[in-house]
Design a protein around this nucleic acid. Sequence first.
RNA 1: GGAGGGGUGGCCGAGCGGUUGAUGGCAGUUGUCUUGAAAACAACCAGGUGGUGAGCCUCGGGGGUUCGAAUCCCUCCCCCUCCGCCA
Length: 424
Amino acid sequence: MLNLKVVREHPEVVQAALEKRHTSAPLGELLQLDEERRRLLSEVESLRAQRNQVSQQLGRQKERPPELIAAMREVGERIKELDGRVAALDAGIERLLLYLPNIPEESVPVGADESENVVVRRWGTPRGFHFEPRAHWDLGEALGIVDFPRGAKIAGARSWVLKGDGARLNRALIAFMLDLHTRQHGYAEVATPYLVKPECMVGTGQFPKFVDEAYTVCSDELVLIPTAEVPVTNLYRDEILAPGVLPIYHVCHSACFRREAGAAGRDTRGLIRVHQFDKVELVKLVEPASSDDELERLVDDAEEVLRALELPHQVKLLCTGDLGFASARTYDPEVWMPGQGRYVEISSCSNFLDFQARRASIRYRPAAGARPEFVHTLNGSGLAVGRTLAAVLEYYQQPDGSVVVPPVLRPYLSGQEVIRPPAS
RNA sequence: GGAGGGGUGGCCGAGCGGUUGAUGGCAGUUGUCUUGAAAACAACCAGGUGGUGAGCCUCGGGGGUUCGAAUCCCUCCCCCUCCGCCA
């Protein structure tokens, strides 16, 4: 959520941001409601001041002039009427404000869509193959470690079942990532609910605009999380963090649930775009002055997983047209998937500045006795586990259909070096 | 699911219709004293809006009664205890 004061005083900045994002919002209507609200507010406040003063006076003295009480009754009725109008305006302003996207940072490249994202670096050179590399869905099914037909049978399209070494590899990846981030990068591990209240989704920016992309449990008015970013960031909602507790770094493994509405026809096969997947998420709450640096280190922490797995990858800086609603700056690490012949997004690391903190009301006290200020929040996948599993299968495949286990994962698989097809 | 108890400032805990946004204690900040620390003493010490002003709002949320509500009424939410069920 943007600071209403900024919107009021610099509407041209907000308008420019909307244009750079190739989107629109009823900014004029918002400003009009705000002006009206401020006008009524000053009127109702002076009436209230008058009533408070008279009531206090009546409490102090013995005689209660009936005409004064009658006059105050009328003032009270007028206050009630104005209060109603202010409340209606409040609701309207709040709603419009919740639909305004974040303002991209100055250094974010301006562009219309994903084709104008900028590759900022590449790591590693994809190895050559003496044979035609297979897609992970073919490999996985041939190895007997992934079962898409049965996934579809029990949960519909875009579902999967991992079996045997596939399930073990998934588990190994999760454990490896959690260990790396807790031991090497200083993140504190948390495990949080997968079902959250809708206000958490508002807090991180998914709601109200993107309700169609989430699964909601209507009977209990809860929402299945699309990412652990939601519960982990909201851990601190409505709090004022004491001096010295920032920065907070959390890592959290969770299942993630996405309806993928509007993605019909895209990545229909395999593990790339599914309704449920595991993800290890990195979340940071920091002081505003450090959030730029913190984002760079966050991306590096995510990339470290790919470097450790020796998977070639590149990092893209998203342009304004492809930037997420709540983000001011986003880097997308993309892994090379030889079976696809392309780089595939495997993480997304964003700095939200105080956008989420305002929505979720997460503040900190810079020093004892100082006024509370909004924190800056950041998060990024470190990494999406299903896609990482797919990338490992495709990149480490051998001509006979077996898959070499990346050395760094072997301790998590009882030393196993190769995943082989079932003996036939 | 059934029965009972309870939600007040960072924490504990008063208030139960009238200068109470809120007594007191603890914690915290600053100052005096001290070589330093402790102790003692003094001041400050909830959030929002506003200009670190006045004013206004907030005692779990919402609504009502009243000139006036933390205090009375209605309603919803949450927490705790016991019973039932359950991994």
